[in-house]
Design a protein around this nucleic acid. Structure first.
Length: 517
RNA sequence: GGGCCCGUAGUUCAGUUGGUUAGAACGAACCGCUCAUAACGGUUAUGUCGCAGGUUCGAGUCCUGCCGGGCCUACCA
């Protein structure tokens, strides 16, 4: 059970994009899982990074007057900064322009080619020179002169260029068999259904090289071609664990990946193309791909044209990092689209964090400092009420683990907050402020029990809110080594006699400027 | 056009293989407490479970049709 390997990945983000809340959301979910598994004693490898090849990058670099490598060196920093600002605990940050990735991806190409699954053909389609893009027949319309034009209005012409193809059409049945044998491969279920029906509908061979631009990984033995997008991008997951050295300690430990987290827009690449590529190379497909939904700004899709794009930085500046981390995973059922708004943010911060959890810690710690000489009190024999709540706070881990394994973060948090509620009810039922006058020893026991319940809650909440949880555990004088899930059992618990600092609220209420007056 | 999912209290959602008076949270009203970040606890209320049929002793829970919303995918021209 100890030291189980757990390898999870975010998508690699396209460097040409500016980081927005969607990137932050995907990586946040992974970060929470990574931290959870580490606390659970697993040997975690958590990867994120940037996708740096392609025509758009080539053009942007040109426009900036620098070569593509220098350009990507610069803009990939935007995503490294995001990782730092959001307190992500990734173990590696991969860039597709790194030598290790170029080497790994050419090796994958050779393997697939040598297995007979890549052939040379022609890529053809309607090409708009002005847009430098191909369009499907269905996207085209006719202008006044009867010429076919792209949605942009640009004239298109039928273009044919040599291209290597991957024989995706041959993988329909193997893929369907794989889905069938691995019912948890794609989540949530509704996405799984979509993918299965897409594959069942038949697959076309996939163009996997281009000659029309240069910024990419050269095709082995035919440098006129560069590899096209997905083969390059997807293989980052293998590169980072040492491919092509499949005997390496990293690869043999971490492959196949336990989870690829993706947005729903790129599910097909991960759930169809990627396992097909891997099977074609005699490699194991990942164990699970999970496609989450979109965050909608008050119900509207965020877009540049609407001017309602929210960045993680905007939210963190206003509400604080840990509250934002909590909010994003608690408010929206992961996997579905969901609204975010100032009102719901304030609701979560004030109700769940300030009033329920924060105030629980504050009221209990204040009583201990005032009435127990600022030391963890010495308990007497525990009553049934005491053992019940302690057991509940301990047992909830199993429920949370189960929910997180299905990426149901909101459900896991709900389960933890049920215990927060229990603890507040316990305070009221035991009324330690009465016991202070009537039965000081019982008061001491009640406060001890509460301190230990708060300890457990803080330990559980660490993956979501690392800094705030750490502050709570500091206030309980819990040693750094005693903060893993293994410490959720009875010992080591809060230590009677341990000196506690004067408590200060961990989660301040959010007060609107307008309503403050 | 084909496929998939959804439509349950003001709001966001749970409702397991069909079975007694349909649940939670937030919000609302009232009551209590006073340790605490004016926080906490208790009580109460509201639902034609999208609409119409059907199967069944019994349906939010299965079937059919319709209306409404979303997603995936295709095509005609």
């Amino acid at each position: 059970m100890a030291d189980q390997p757990y390898y999870l990945t975010t998508p690699i983000y396209y460097v040409n994009d500016k980081p927005h809340i969607g990137h932050a959301y995907t990586t946040l979910a992974c970060d929470v899982l990574a931290r959870f598994h580490r606390l659970d004693g697993d040997d975690v490898h958590f990867l994120t990074g940037t996708d740096e090849h392609g025509q758009k990058v080539e053009k942007s670099a040109q426009a900036a007057g620098v070569d593509p490598q220098a350009f990507t060196d610069q803009v990939s920093q935007n995503f490294r900064r995001l990782a730092e600002d959001m307190n992500y605990s990734n173990d590696d940050f991969i860039r597709t322009t790194e030598p290790r990735h170029i080497e790994a991806t050419q090796a994958l190409w050779r393997k697939i080619r040598d297995n007979g699954h890549i052939y040379l053909g022609h890529y053809e389609g309607w090409y708009a020179v002005r847009d430098e893009a191909f369009y499907a027949e269905s996207e085209l319309t006719k202008d006044d002169n009867g010429n076919k034009v792209a949605p942009s209005g640009a004239e298109v012409e039928w273009v044919k260029e040599p291209s290597y193809f991957f024989d995706l059409s041959k993988w329909q049945q193997p893929l369907l068999d794989y889905y069938d044998a691995n019912p948890d491969f794609i989540g949530p279920d509704t996405r799984r259904n979509e993918v299965v029906s897409f594959v069942a509908g038949g697959l076309d061979d996939l163009s996997v090289s281009r000659t029309s631009f240069k910024w990419g990984i050269p095709v082995p033995d035919d440098p006129e071609h560069i590899m096209y997008v997905w083969l390059d991008a997807l293989n980052n997951y293998q590169t980072a664990v040492g491919y092509p050295d499949t005997e390496s300690s990293l690869y043999s430990k971490y492959w196949p990946a336990d989870l690829h987290m993706v947005g729903k827009d790129i599910l097909r690449f991960h759930a169809v193309y990627w396992p097909a590529f891997l099977m074609a190379a005699d490699l194991a497909p990942p164990k699970r791909v999970y496609a989450h939904g979109w965050l909608l700004n008050r119900g509207e899709k965020m877009s540049k044209s609407l001017g309602n794009v929210v960045t993680a930085g905007d939210l963190v500046d206003r509400y604080g990092l840990d509250p934002v981390r909590y909010y994003l995973l608690r408010e929206v059922p992961f996997g579905q689209d969901g609204y975010i708004s100032h009102e719901t943010m304030v609701g979560r911060i004030n109700s769940d964090l300030a009033n329920d959890l924060g105030n629980l810690a504050q009221r209990v710690l204040s009583m201990i400092v005032k009435n127990c000489d600022a030391k963890v009190p010495q308990p007497q024999a525990l009553t049934a009420d005491d053992t019940t709540i302690i057991a509940a706070a301990t047992d909830v881990l199993a429920a949370v683990r189960g929910e997180f394994e299905r990426q149901a973060f909101h459900r896991g948090l709900e389960a933890i907050w049920k215990i927060v509620g229990d603890a507040n009810r316990y305070v009221d039922a035991q009324a330690p402020w009465e016991l202070r006058k009537t039965d000081p020893e019982r008061m001491a026991t009640v406060l001890f029990v509460l301190a230990d319940v708060i300890r457990r809650l803080a330990i559980l909440v660490q993956p979501i809110m690392p800094d705030a949880a750490s502050a709570m555990l500091d206030q309980l004088a819990i040693a750094e080594d005693d903060r893993t899930f293994a410490a959720l059992g009875a010992d080591p618990a809060v230590v009677p006699g341990a000196e506690l600092p004067k408590p200060s609220p961990v989660f301040p209420r959010y007060v609107d400027d307008e309503t403050a007056a």
